[in-house]
């Protein structure tokens, strides 16, 4: 069954059609990579799917339910979570508090005014587990703003994981990470496969072809091909439009 079903999705910025009648189906449990050149509209697509940006038209069905018109926070609550290409954290909070906030959002009411949230063991334990999973548990009590760029990328993923998504939309999670950090994140994504349905946008082709069950190629707001990594690698249309520059590798 398809967990995510996108039909005729559209969005324009002025005369620029950034998402042009786009169709996309993501099966439950798969890791579906979306690749495409700079400016193809990948981040815009994530923004539309997550509800951060409005769409001009079309349909986004998650687990059979229409999501169009729902704001981002309500999509998160039914299990659609996303990470940002440009790191988006709470810089004045500790790493632990960043993740604990995400745990808090799905565990009970936040209209509680009297008991200190920092002492809620359950929130902190789950947050620490998420930090540990991405490999920065030792940074738990550091201010998020003071972490290195790569550590912030890891934190970004930990926050998204802490929302306990059924569908995780990852916008270039490896961008700007060091080799070791990237390896760790790839390992985490591999570990998620099967449990969480993943839509992965990534420029790192080695990572994409190693991880993905299926790959879609997005060019000028349209998906020009979808298939297994091997099929996509050999597709002449894709090579012409996108992979041509990597012919030699």
């Amino acid at each position: 069954m398809n967990l995510l079903e996108v039909r005729n999705l559209r969005k324009s910025y002025g005369a620029l059609k950034v998402t042009d009648d786009l169709d996309l189906s993501v099966e439950e449990g798969e890791l579906h990579a979306i690749i495409g050149p700079n400016g193809a509209g990948k981040s815009t697509l994530i923004a539309q799917l997550s509800g951060q940006a409005t769409s001009d038209g079309g349909s986004v069905r998650f687990d059979g339910t229409e999501m169009m018109g729902r704001p981002m926070h309500r999509r998160v609550r039914v299990g659609m979570s996303r990470s940002f290409q440009i790191t988006s954290i709470l810089p004045g909070f500790t790493a632990l508090e960043n993740v604990a906030s995400a745990v808090q959002a799905r565990s009970g009411s936040s209209f509680r005014f009297f008991s200190p949230v920092a002492e809620e063991r359950d929130l902190n334990d789950q947050a620490l587990a998420a930090l540990d999973r991405v490999g920065i548990a030792d940074r738990a009590f550091f201010n998020a703003g003071s972490l290195s760029h790569g550590e912030k990328r890891q934190l970004e993923l930990a926050i998204a994981l802490a929302t306990r998504p059924r569908l995780l939309l990852l916008d270039e999670p490896l961008a700007g990470t060091s080799g070791a950090e990237a390896d760790r994140l790839i390992q985490v994504m591999r570990g998620l496969k099967g449990d969480v349905t993943l839509v992965l946008i990534e420029h790192d082709m080695d990572a994409v072809f190693a991880l993905a069950d299926r790959v879609s190629v997005l060019v000028y707001g349209r998906i020009i091909a979808t298939g297994t990594p091997d099929r996509i690698r050999d597709d002449p249309q894709v090579r012409a439009a996108y992979l041509g520059e990597e012919e030699g590798t």
């Binding site: 997550s50 926070h73 979570s81 810089p91 906030s101 808090q104 509680r112 008991s115």
Partner: peptide, 25 residues
């Protein structure tokens, strides 16, 4: 300020989009 509510309030000041992306309005 130290409560759950206070954390959401402060988080929304720090980065409202981040708070929306974890499920808060």
């Amino acid at each position: 300020t130290r409560s759950r509510f206070g954390r959401v309030l402060t988080g929304a000041r720090e980065n409202p989009v981040r708070m929306q992306a974890i499920g808060f309005s």
